[in-house]
């Protein structure tokens, strides 16, 4: 049986409600795409049904033949495609087909990171304990995707709603990040 990186933390993360609705979304399909040719990027986007983000530090999302797919900007020639579990082989083949003979690579990196969804009115306050990026809605609106440090751990942070963020963290750091989250929420929880 496969155990997700934060399986042991699900109860303690759930106990953060109502300050923070924190839950792992395990085993998401993730593919790292390295490509700089604009035609290949457009072809990959139309195949997925989701256009690749053109602006730095943003992500796009939509529904296509491979289901609900998100495409995250990681660098000027680097993207991360995320999708529901068990889609990685299909998406890899589809994207490789769209890439054709252009220079680039499509690599399954699903095991590299796990996904944590954080939601609640205090989500920005909690993250501010360990993340220096300005997450105010004026500077980080919905659709923002930044790679930064949260409590010295490298993360990819997606702003998916008014009080909702998705954090992608390396599997081996996930336990540490969960422990830090529980600690950072302490001051907002009601005293028993």
């Amino acid at each position: 049986m496969t155990v997700s990186p934060l399986a042991a933390w699900s109860d303690r993360l759930a106990a953060l409600a109502p300050v923070l609705d924190a839950a792992e979304v395990p085993f998401r399909s993730q593919l790292t795409v390295r490509v700089s040719d604009p035609d290949a990027i457009a072809a990959m986007g139309s195949t997925l049904g989701v256009g690749f983000p053109s602006a730095a530090c943003t992500f796009t999302s939509g529904t296509g033949p491979c289901g609900d797919v998100e495409v995250l900007w990681l660098g000027p020639d680097e993207f991360l495609v995320t999708a529901p579990p068990d889609q990685q082989v299909t998406i890899e083949e589809v994207l490789r087909g769209a890439l054709g003979t252009a220079w680039g690579s499509v690599v399954d990196t699903s095991a590299q990171r796990t996904t944590v969804v954080l939601q609640g009115p205090r989500v920005r306050d909690v993250l501010a304990h360990g993340c220096s990026v300005d997450l105010h809605p004026a500077s980080a609106p919905r659709g923002t995707c930044v790679q930064t440090l949260l409590a010295r751990t490298g993360i990819v942070l997606q702003v998916t709603g008014d009080d909702r963020v998705t954090v992608l963290v390396r599997s081996s750091f996930a336990g540490y990040l969960a422990a830090w989250l529980v600690d950072a929420c302490t001051e907002y929880l009601a005293v028993p």
């Binding site: 660098g75 000027p76 220096s132 930044v146 930064t148 440090l149 010295r152």
Partner: peptide, 17 residues
């Protein structure tokens, strides 16, 4: 902490560099 303006990502903390 000092902010360094990355030409791609904008101003970020020096510890990221």
């Amino acid at each position: 902490m000092q902010l360094i303006p990355c030409p791609w990502c904008g101003p970020r903390e020096e510890a990221e560099f």
